[in-house]
Design a protein around this nucleic acid. Sequence first.
DNA 1: TCTGGGGTCCTAGGACCC
DNA 2: TCTGGGGTCCTAGGACCC
Length: 426
Amino acid sequence: MKAIVDCNSFYCSCERVFRPDLEEKPVVVLSNNDGCIISISNEAKNYGIDMAIPYYQAKDIIEQNGISTFSSNYNLYGDLSRRVMDTLKYLVGEENVEVYSVDEAFLDLTHIPVEELHQCAAHIRDVVEQWTGVSVSVGVGKTKVLSKVANRLSKKLRVASKTWVLDTDEATADALQRTHVKDLWGIGRRYALKLMDWNIHTAWELKHMNEEWARANLGGVIGVRMIQELNGKHSIEMRDPLVNKKMIATTRMFGAAVSDLKDIKEAVATYTARAAEKLRRQHSAASLISVFVVPKQQSGSADYRHGGYPRTRYQTLYSPTSLTHELIKPAMALAEKVYKDGERYSKAGVMLSGLVPDTSIQANLFKSAASNQSRWLMNMLDNINFSMRDDIIKYASAGTEKNWKMRQDFISPRYTTRWNELREVK
DNA sequence: TCTGGGGTCCTAGGACCC
DNA sequence: TCTGGGGTCCTAGGACCC
């Protein structure tokens, strides 16, 4: 059996952990740049606020009802996420936990007797809540897709136990009949429309389609796996926890449109440094770097929602590297290439790909000993940045003025990662 | 003018996820 | 006026090889 453990309104819960006065009060958290609403507490949902709508559209409701609003504070969320995941690993064994996203993990519960699953799910829920202060929902089923179905029902129906267990065929059939295909994990808008054209509406109906039909009509092997999972045949593997990312990107919208090459280069240098950190954290080196900018669209343009078309330039590196200064140099050259005088930009980004393990670098005899020295410097830099987080130590090219920086009007303190922002207790 | 039947690698694009 | 920031997997098609 598989379980999915999902933190409830995760970013809101994180804000509440250190603000008990907000318990049972409506809370929302905004995306970077305070653009969209990306987390909503149940109480705020009751006011009709929806996920992913722009902040300005909900501003009136928020102000009229005194809904607490926060800019996203990823230092805090990252730290609490790690605590939740560590708790799950402690409870079921590290090898049985697949961290799926910042607020979700799949668990392999094959070793738990079926008759104990209800109790097990409740235990996980209680311990995580007691140890971290974050409330979680637990869905259990024969496969990942079925555990997702169960989890969704517990959340949607707001069942008091916050758990839903599909431990019998009857329970599974019932859950699938209550679930629309558009709500299945792996069925997006496109496939949902297609299925409805075929007059397939519930997960129960989809379950009874045959695999060859799915192969022909539902994205090939993706469709086949969906049918199998719905039928209780485990087809989506637990991901190897040691698998590293194959591409690393750091990109941001600007707080306000930017037109100076100098500002673009500062932003790109900062993003490159951040991407290089992610790279080193997984012990990889990149062999390809690309830089892109997105020109600001005229307002009123038809395609406004998606911004302008990005313009990308890339460069293959002479040899794979994870060293910030070796990446910043080509990044700066690429920034100059994508830049056009007189154009205004709403966004820029850096992508690192062609990732290889960075042990291969050490084996490279053509690298000077000085690079190994650099690796030590990088380790030190990462450790300092981790504790000081605001990048007190920076490369000169990353600049200091940051007029391209994002807007964060409602940021909460970094309670767990900064000494001077610790919560005070009377 | 005639012109096989594999392979691999890479890239672009579509679909999905949180 | 104001609209995250990441990621993954799969497939098709082109370039190139023997």
